[in-house]
Design a protein around this nucleic acid. Structure first.
Length: 139
DNA sequence: GCCAACGTTGGC
DNA sequence: GCCAACGTTGGC
């Protein structure tokens, strides 16, 4: 079987839903998305895909890696049944969180959606970028 | 606290 | 269909 894993970045305010919280729960539903582009990205996710977990606002850093455990289904928090959610489980936290400032300091990473489209909360990453971002945790 | 970037709403 | 007003997100 060819490896068809796709890579993503999920953004959350740690005060609302933190990686620590996800670790405690063991598995979490990624709901509450109310943006069409983010929705489209959620619908593109396949079970087994990997995503970076980014804490926005107060931390502004990538703090961990998660895996998609359930593909897009109706968002339980949405009464209109227009929006979708996925389920994720934590894989491992990063030893050193990768800060936004650190990412911005890398010339080869200035074109990623996290930088160019700061308000998007669910975005695709290429495999290369995914690994480049993880590598920053080691430097 | 401020502001830029977007998205949504509603008047016309 | 256009656009002003307003709300939200998120970086600084």
């Amino acid at each position: 079987m060819p490896d068809t894993t796709q890579y993503w970045l999920l953004k959350s305010e740690p005060e609302t839903y933190s990686y620590t919280h996800l670790l405690e729960e063991g598995e979490g539903t990624w709901d509450g998305v109310r943006n069409h582009q983010a929705k489209k990205n959620l619908q593109g996710m396949k079970q087994g895909d990997k995503a970076l977990f980014y804490h926005s606002v107060s931390e502004k850093a990538i703090v961990g890696v998660v895996e998609i455990t359930e593909e897009a289904h109706p968002d339980p928090t949405d009464e209109t049944e227009k929006w979708v959610a996925v389920k994720v489980k934590p894989l491992y936290p990063l030893k050193n969180p990768v800060s936004l400032a650190h990412i911005k300091a890398c010339p080869h990473l200035t074109e990623i959606p996290l930088i160019k489209q700061s308000r998007l909360s669910v975005m695709p990453l290429s495999e290369t970028v995914f690994h480049q971002l993880l590598a920053l945790s080691e430097s």
